[in-house]
């Protein structure tokens, strides 16, 4: 639109900048806090600019952990494993079932469809206690499987892939059949590559979902070597008696948010497209 109104454009930018400032302020303060030493963070008023302790804090936290926690390096690794297992596991499982639902006519299709539909409605938080008991019975406490499996089967991804597959023109399947592709060839040669945008978007969403899991890992891991970085924050803040060690906590917080933030920003285009187009 040709509308040359510098004033209103200026106002828009001003509002946006203010919004961005407010939204990013907590994150900026985290970086600031992570770069000072403990003593400075107890003096009021707290600093608004960067300090010089960043690398010290980083080294200390990564290698030794905070208080009696495991070293952050290990936690980051745990988080990564968990996030990847959840993301990849969910994607694989959901791709398969979505494929079956959309392209095959089998006996219990509707039953199955409803089953997925119901699981869609039950976030882990809701059925946390009984799920815990099931996992305990299966002896999967303190394992990566126990950590991830219960989170893998949520139906959101299955639904999204179903949407995606439904939007693939039928003619593509027909052309592939004429070209002599069997069901598996069609799946791998055509369907997966054609759906790669939604797969990528799903990966971003699920990676973050996995990385940011809190309540479930909190319950299921008692071994401190299985702790994820996101959980550790809480433990650190409760390293009671004294005041919280803010410089280490904030460094941990920073480390905990860098990977997901990088993933979101790096894959922003795909993510935004996948999110807003498929979830509607």
């Amino acid at each position: 639109m040709i509308e040359n109104r510098p004033v209103s454009t200026f106002i828009s930018h001003a509002v946006l900048l203010a919004g961005v400032a407010i939204v990013l302020f907590p994150i900026w303060i985290t970086i600031v806090a992570a770069s000072h030493d403990a003593a400075r963070l107890l003096q009021v008023p707290l600093p608004l600019g960067l300090g010089d302790q960043f690398y010290e804090n980083l080294k200390e936290v990564i290698g030794k952990g905070v208080g009696n926690t495991a070293p952050l390096g290990l936690m980051l690794f745990n988080s990564l494993v968990m996030a990847l297992m959840i993301a990849i596991g969910k994607i694989v499982v959901s791709l398969l079932s979505a494929y079956a639902i959309v392209y095959f006519d089998f006996k219990f299709r509707m039953l199955f469809f409803w089953m997925i539909f119901i699981t869609l409605m039950l976030p882990v938080e809701v059925r946390i206690l009984p799920t815990y008991e099931v996992v305990a019975k299966l002896g999967m406490l303190n394992t990566y499987w126990g950590l991830t499996l219960p989170l893998i089967a949520s139906a959101t991804a299955t639904f999204m892939f179903r949407q995606t597959f439904l939007s693939v023109p039928d003619e593509l399947l027909e052309a592939a059949r004429i070209d002599g592709a069997g069901p598996m060839q069609f799946f791998f040669d055509i369907l997966i590559p054609v759906s790669r945008t939604s797969i990528a978007a799903m990966f971003v969403i699920l990676f973050i979902y996995g990385w940011n899991q809190y309540l479930w890992p909190l319950l299921i891991t008692t071994d401190k070597n299985m702790v994820t970085i996101v959980m550790s924050i809480k433990t650190m803040m409760e390293a009671l008696e004294e005041l919280p060690k803010w410089h280490h906590i904030m460094m941990t917080a920073l480390l905990a948010m860098i990977p997901p933030v990088l993933v979101v920003i790096g894959m922003q285009k795909l993510f935004v497209k996948g999110l807003t187009e498929t979830e509607k």
């Binding site: 939204v23 907590p26 994150i27 707290l46 940011n212 904030m250 979101v264």
Partner: peptide, 29 residues
């Protein structure tokens, strides 16, 4: 958009920790 997308990636607990830090009764900014 790139700048405003950040909080989405931050875990709830971490978000909680950030805000506690800002509002910590004795020292929060």
């Amino acid at each position: 958009r790139t700048l405003l997308i950040w909080p989405y990636a931050v875990a709830p607990v971490v978000a909680g920790a950030l805000w506690v830090f800002l509002f910590y009764p004795t020292t929060g900014i």
